[in-house]
Design a protein around this nucleic acid. Sequence first.
DNA 1: CATTACCTGCAA
DNA 2: TTGCAGGTAATG
Length: 286
Amino acid sequence: MPELPEVEITKEKLKKLINKKIIASWTDLPKAILNLKKNSISKDILNQKIKDIKRKGKAVLIYLEKNKNETLLAIHQRMSGRFIIKNKNEKTKYVHLKILFNDKSELWFEDQRKFGTIWYGSEKDVLNQKYFKNLGKDAHNINFNDFYKIISAKNASIKSVLLNQKNLSGLGNAYSDEALWLSKIHPKQIAKNLNKNEIKKLWKAIKIVLNKGIKLQGISMRNWLHPDGEKGKMQEDFNVYQQKNCKRCGSKIQKIKIASRNSNFCPNCQKLINLSLKSKNKNSKE
DNA sequence: CATTACCTGCAA
DNA sequence: TTGCAGGTAATG
């Protein structure tokens, strides 16, 4: 479920694990782990220390080190994954990976639907995996020129362009809907038909929405919580995603399927622009 | 490009 | 009982 802000929060909270040494590990889903090393993972990560935690796209990167030999454990939470730093109050349902540390703390990976992906190997081998290799620029950091080049070249609905991680990485269904609402762009608008001004509004809206998500500590819907069990508040502040009425004009929010995902938009604020009219206007202005 | 499959629980 | 869920890879 998590999108960029949720993964960003997760990464920050997992940083408290840095310098801990792994003394044991357990999994009941060995097939879910793509091991790029010859040794078994449990043997290989034994006695390694957590050196650093990073984020790439929607994946968390856990850098490990032993005797200057560095490896990378990368985990993508997909739809139902969640990290848990062991805590007596946490329910223990659906835990599929446990890592035990020298100070008796534990990191667990929970995943009800088992869509999560785990990669392990050298940094180079992991980052050469298709997901990482194909990942577009980070939605939180991309500059306007790069964003403009990508969007204006795509002959597809803007919503599907935003969801495709190869174009830019980090946006998912909820934040895409929020960004399109903020920039008043219809999700079915063909990306290459947007003018520069509209693309600029969208670019700014993406930054605003992602920053808001991070500030509110992410979306905690269903079972998703921070690794320490805390909740995000972004779900209380949606303007269009899963809303009944538009927070701007009060119109009834419409739901349509795009790229087999539900798109929420305001039919009054986010109008599909007629292309012939649009090109006429564009010409008359220039 | 848009659908479908992956997997499971939960709400309608 | 059906359809839906914040994601991605594989398939027409």
